[in-house]
Amino acid sequence: MLDFSILTENLDMYLLGFKNTILSSLIALVASLILGILVAIMRIAPIKPLNWLGTAYVEFIRNIPLLIITFFFFLGLKLSGLYAGTLALTIYTSSFIAEAIRAGILSVPKGQMEAARSSGLSYGQAMRLVILPQAVKIVIPPLGNQFINLVKNSSILAVVAGLDLMYHGDLISSRTFVVFDVYIFVAAFYLILTIPLSIGVGYLEKRLAKSN
C-alpha cells in the first residue's frame, strides 16, 4: 500500500518542484514553438542558404542527446540548472517541432500556393493567409506529442540541480530512504500536467476537423 504520509509530510517540496517543472515546461513550450516555426520556414523558404542553415540546425540538434545539450549550457556556459535545462529543452524540442511544422506545410497541396500567388499575393502573404492556416490542422497532433514529450523531458533538470519535480523527488528519496512511493507521487504530478495536455490536444484536433 502507498504511504501517503510521504506525500503530506513533503508536500511543500513536491509543490516547489511541481511549480518549477510547470515554469520550465511553459517557457520551453512557447519558446520552442516560436523557434520551431522560424526554423521550419527557413527550411521551406525559396532561399537556398536559409534552407541549408535550417537543415543543419535540425539535423545537428535532434541527433544529439538532450543530456549533452543540457551539459553544454550547464558546464560549458556555467548557467544555473534551471536556466541551462530550460534552454536545452527549448532548443532540443524546437528541432522536432520544426520538422512537424515543415511536414504540415508540405502536405498542403502545391496548387494552393500557386492559386494564391497567381492572384497577386506575395510569398509571405500566401504563406500566412493561405498555407499556414491549413497546415495548423495537420500539425496539431504531432505538435501535441512534442509538448507531452517536452513536459516529461523536463526531468532532465534533475541532473543539473534544476530544482524541478524530479530533482525534489530525488531529494525526498535520499532524505527518507524511501524510493518506490516517492517516485510514484512524482509520476502522479507529471500525469497532472500531461493528461490534460493530451485531452486538450484531442479536443483541438476534433474542433479543427469539424471546421473543414
Binding site: 496548387g111 494552393q112 500557386e114 492559386a115 492556416p133 471546421s211 473543414n212
Partner: peptide, 9 residues
Amino acid sequence: FQHFYLYPH
C-alpha cells in the same frame, strides 16, 4: 486551375 484550388478554410 483544373482542380479549382479554392481555399478550403
